[in-house]
Computed example of a mutant assay.
Amino acid sequence: MSITVSRKIETIEAIPLRIPFTAGGRSDTGAWGGKDLKTVDSLIVKVTTDQGLVGWGESFGFTVIPAVKVAIEKIIAPLCIGRDPSLIGKLMHELQVTLHIFGRSGAIMYGLSALDIALWDIAGKEAGQPVHQLLGGSDVDRLPCYASLIRYTDPELVTANVTRALSDGYRHIKLHEVKIDCVRSAREAAGDDVEMTLDVNCPWTVREALDRTNELHPYNLRWLEEPVWPPENYDGLARVRREGGIPIAAGENASTLMDFQHLLQAQAVDFVQPSPAKMGGITELRKVFALASAHNTTVMVHAFYDGPGLLASVHSSAALGGPSALVEWRYFDLEAQLYGDAIIPKRGAIAVPQGPGLGIEPDADVIRDYRMN
């Protein structure tokens, strides 16, 4: 006789954190905050089952955290309490259908993403396996990282922090600069053998982007990321890819599988960048890997996070990304790390957690000390 084990989601808690950081000098205005930002805000989600299992997720954060917290607590959580946490695909599909009228991007999708990551964490713990094994398995125990620098808009600070990243063992650097002299300084500091990418956060028209690619050619970029405004101008992005002569990356602002389908059908990118804490979590992320494979396009998961969103990226990249996978490491010096030293890259590579679920539990003291009221 078989025995069916009843499982239910008992509680869902959204926890905002604010952790001070430094980044090797004064920052300039960037997509993640105002000029000379001194703290980084994140939103983690704790899902507890009636059997006592706890899963952790993470939503896209920064200044949108108050809206996402309300969306999770007032809209998403009431639909999930009492549901079976093991039926991840079924539940996430139902939630997307139920909540589509409120928008297919922004706070609702960010909240669903955090929930999904937490449910995968629970699934792995229940199975006694790391998430990457649930995704098909991996024999990779470390993944190379690229140091994702903040925007400095100061060539001397760019030089200093590229040099600092190289001394920490990174051989891949991402800039967030928009001025050519800063890119020039970075390449001069890095030399010719270091792979360098440039994320400009959607500032230009198609014509402006094409003009800039001409100026950027000498600096041998592995990719130019999100050069066109608005980010959903996939035809314009495709033109920059065809005519600009620099590989194009985009996707962190795409919110649904259909967005990625349109992006890939437009032949707009060489590298597609789903962001698991924004676009539906691990459930949707693995679909993007399959879709990208069908379009002969490389996935480089966007992971500008330090919590469960980063771990979701690491597990997915290990299982689905293949030998070209790189992990984005937010090159901040945080006052406290949610996972202590366990996830910090060593010599430019990050360990793939081998414990059940996401593999590492957040530090309760860090949550207590840096929780926002």
Rank of each mutant, 00 (worst) to 15 (best):
A250I: 02
A250H: 07
E243N: 11
E243D: 15
M279S: 13
R242P: 06
A266C: 13
A277S: 15
A250C: 09
V272D: 07
A268R: 10
G280C: 15
G245M: 13
P274S: 06
A249M: 05
A268E: 12
A249T: 04
S275D: 15
A266H: 08
F260I: 01
G281Q: 09
L257G: 14
N253V: 00
G244D: 08
G245P: 09
A249R: 02
S275M: 13
G244Y: 07
V272F: 01
N253S: 11
Q261N: 10
G244I: 06
V272E: 11
Q265F: 10
G281S: 12
P274F: 00
M258N: 11
D270Y: 02
G251Y: 00
P274D: 06
N253F: 01
Q273W: 05
K278I: 02
T256C: 05
V269C: 07
E252I: 00
D259A: 01
I248E: 03
F260K: 09
L257A: 14
S255R: 07
E243M: 10
G281E: 12
F260M: 06
S275T: 03
G280W: 10
P247M: 06
I248H: 04
S255L: 02
G281Y: 03
P274K: 01
A250D: 12
K278N: 06
D259T: 02
G281L: 06
T256I: 03
Q265Y: 13
A254M: 14
P247K: 06
Q265W: 14
A277R: 03
K278C: 01
Q273C: 01
L264P: 13
D270H: 09
A277Q: 13
I248G: 00
E243W: 07
P276Q: 12
P247R: 03
G244L: 04
Q261W: 11
Q265H: 15
V269W: 08
T256A: 02
N253G: 07
G251C: 00
F271H: 09
A250L: 09
P274M: 03
L263E: 04
A268I: 08
D259H: 07
G281V: 08
G280E: 13
L257I: 14
Q267L: 05
G251Q: 02
A277L: 07
Q267G: 10
R242H: 13
D270T: 03
E243C: 11
Q265P: 05
A268M: 08
D259I: 02
S275C: 15
A250M: 08
